[in-house]
């Protein structure tokens, strides 16, 4: 089996590597563009994937409504920015307020969703919670669609278009640069939150063993709420950034983004925070290469194919550990 895996690996990676090197030499700028595009895309996935992986780590639930939280973040930013823009506020103030509102509202939605749809099902069979999550996701999508519009709404970029020095200016845009930098900063802050703060330690303890955690005096309900809130905050940042990047928003953007981010989380090893980041970057970059060099119509098919392959050959993901569930 091991030998088979190695042969398979070489058979796949070999030609790809050969092809890759050939292409890079032929057109290095194009390659670089794709790479940076993938990095941007991966950064967004990472911001969303964190929420999935943290929630999964703590309550072993795929939070299907997480994509919708991200969408609500983007929506809120759009609405706030439009209103303030019409009122003629200063554009810097608008940027800051839009982002702040997006984060605050996403957090509030994440918090509320957990209280309504998941908390009453803490001890119920897993299937029940999963169905409840799907119901919540469906509800939020339709709520936004009915209250706003089913159409795409153009989103005027909040990020000022500054110029880089040549030769970077024509391979990376200001928005892309902002996305990458923001993601890095968010990751560092999150890492510090989890490593050094009290609540971060409580989160890690709860993820390991809920009962033990509550025995040593950790308020598990509060930890779970916090996890949802933190995950929602990073998703909101992702939502605002992607809206700036793509330039439009509608009620359905959370579906695919959420799905891809989940795939990224599984790819990296669900439950593992560094795994989620790594998985997102790998998925983003490889997707970008695939669409750049092969078929762009089958972008989503590619992501799912990766998911299935990962699940077959390494279900615990790149950084995940194999855990034996207690009987």
């Amino acid at each position: 089996m091991r030998l088979f895996n190695i042969i398979l690996g070489v058979a796949v990676v070999g030609p790809l590597g050969f092809f890759g090197i050939k292409e890079i030499i032929a057109d290095p700028v194009y390659f670089l563009e794709l790479f940076l595009g993938g990095l941007t895309r991966g950064s967004i996935y990472a911001l969303i994937a964190l929420g999935y992986t943290m929630v999964y780590g703590i309550i072993q639930l795929i939070n299907f409504a997480h994509g919708e939280i991200y969408m609500i973040g983007a929506m809120t930013a759009l609405i706030v920015a439009s209103v303030l823009g019409l009122w003629g506020w200063n554009s810097a103030v608008i940027v800051i307020l839009a982002i702040v509102f997006a984060i605050v509202y996403s957090c509030a939605y994440g918090f509320t969703v957990e209280k309504i749809a998941y908390k009453p099902l803490r001890t119920a069979p897993r299937l029940s919670a999963l169905i409840s999550a799907i119901g919540m996701s469906l509800f939020l999508q339709n709520y936004v669609m009915l209250a706003q519009t089913p159409e795409f709404m153009p989103f005027e970029s909040l990020i000022p278009d500054f110029q880089f020095w040549e030769p970077f200016a024509h391979i990376i845009t200001a928005v892309e640069m902002t996305i990458i930098v923001t993601t890095v900063i968010t990751m560092i802050l999150l890492g510090m939150l989890i490593k050094f703060t009290k609540i971060g330690k409580a989160m890690r303890a709860t993820a390991q063993d809920k009962i033990m955690a509550s025995l040593v005096g950790i308020n598990v309900n509060r930890v779970i709420s916090t996890t949802f809130v933190v995950g929602s905050a990073t998703a909101a940042i992702g939502g605002v950034l992607i809206a700036c990047h793509v330039g439009q928003v509608n009620f359905f953007i959370g579906f695919l983004a959420g799905l891809k981010a989940f795939i990224a989380a599984v790819l990296g090893g669900i439950g593992s925070i560094p795994g989620a980041v790594l998985g997102s970057l790998v998925l983003g970059i490889s997707e970008s290469m695939f669409t750049g060099y092969f078929w762009s119509e089958y972008e989503d098919v590619f992501a799912f194919t990766i998911l299935v392959i990962i699940l077959i050959f390494r279900p615990s993901g790149i950084l995940g550990k194999d855990e034996i569930s207690k009987v």
Partner: peptide, 28 residues
């Protein structure tokens, strides 16, 4: 065959993906 060996909730995601794949293929 490949998916049912895995933890139950992955099935939800993979089937969701499969449904989308079939639709995308039909469209393209």
């Amino acid at each position: 065959y490949p998916v049912l060996r895995l933890r139950g909730d992955y099935l939800a995601i993979v089937t969701l993906g499969f449904g989308e794949i079939i639709r995308i293929i039909l469209e393209n």
